[in-house]
Amino acid sequence: MKPIALTLIPSLFALIALFSADIQSAERLDKIHFLIPAGPGGGWDGTARGMGEAMRKSETVSQVSFENLTGGGGGRAIAKLIETAPRQQNTLLINSTPMVVRSLQGIFPQSFRDLQPIASVIADYSCFVVAKDSPIQTFADAAAIFLDDPRNLKAAGGSVKGSTDHFILARALELAGGSPRKLIYVPYDGGGKAMAGILTGESQILSTGLSEALDMARAGEARIIAVTAPQRLKDAPQIPTLIEQGYDLEFANWRGFFAAPGLSNETYENMMLTVSEALNTEAFEEVRKRNGWTLLHHEGPEFYSFLEQQEAEISVLMRQLGFLR
């Protein structure tokens, strides 16, 4: 008798849980569901969770949930959002510049045109880093080494060949008068290991995202010699831009949110409003400061044309550099 009584109680709880779990999914307007195309702990995940935290703390939205859906280089989450669009009334998919690059390369068949761009929220600029005792002081020094012999400037990066880390540096060297195809790019498994690559001295320059580089460079073992921002950044004024060094290259790696296609205009309006309200709260400002993010807010149609422009730029760049055929 005893075992049955003991097991009955949990099962009662279980039944309640069963129903409450299902009711939870009933859609309410004051709820936002974040779809993150990567596992916990990455850049996308951090941005979405930071945004969600700000929304919940500032009471812009009463309920926030996060779904990590990995696979297909981020393509599975996009495919799922499109397939199940009718029931994704409150879903925001986080994505960033690699989405544009990957659809140009044909890694996944969809592009941002198959989704509804809601807003970009933050920007991460690219930057070039050298070890602290490196003879390279400015980008011109690096370019000079490259022009002399490309084999003496091995470039480390935290992502595969043909990614933004690769072609931004190739483009900058092209502006300096070199042949971008001669650049020897050495991919590492993540930015941390790439940083170790320049500190051990096996490669001479690192091309990576600024926020990641700042985290590591503040340790004092490495120096950032140039950033691809339009002007010096408020949070890191000591870093010179590439433009002020005479190389006309500006590049922002945005992170932003997308909604499922084919929902009503009213829904999209609500989403844009929710995001922009959340961005103006103190709670978000706190999250932004904590992570060292730079705000880059484009909304709806403006975001769409920003994406079109970036896609055109990247596509021209990659074709020029021979990265796309």
Binding site: G41, G46, G190, G192, K193, M195, A196, L199, D215, M216, A217, R218, A219, G220, E221, R290, N291, G292
Partner: peptide, 27 residues
């Protein structure tokens, strides 16, 4: 000591250290 994360786990730990305003490194 160097501010270099060698694994996914230490990368997250680095991120949260920075978020606290703590700068890992020789100092």
């Amino acid at each position: 000591t160097l501010g270099i994360p060698g694994s996914g786990t230490t990368a997250i730990l680095l991120g949260s250290l920075i978020a606290y305003g703590i700068q890992p490194g020789p100092r």
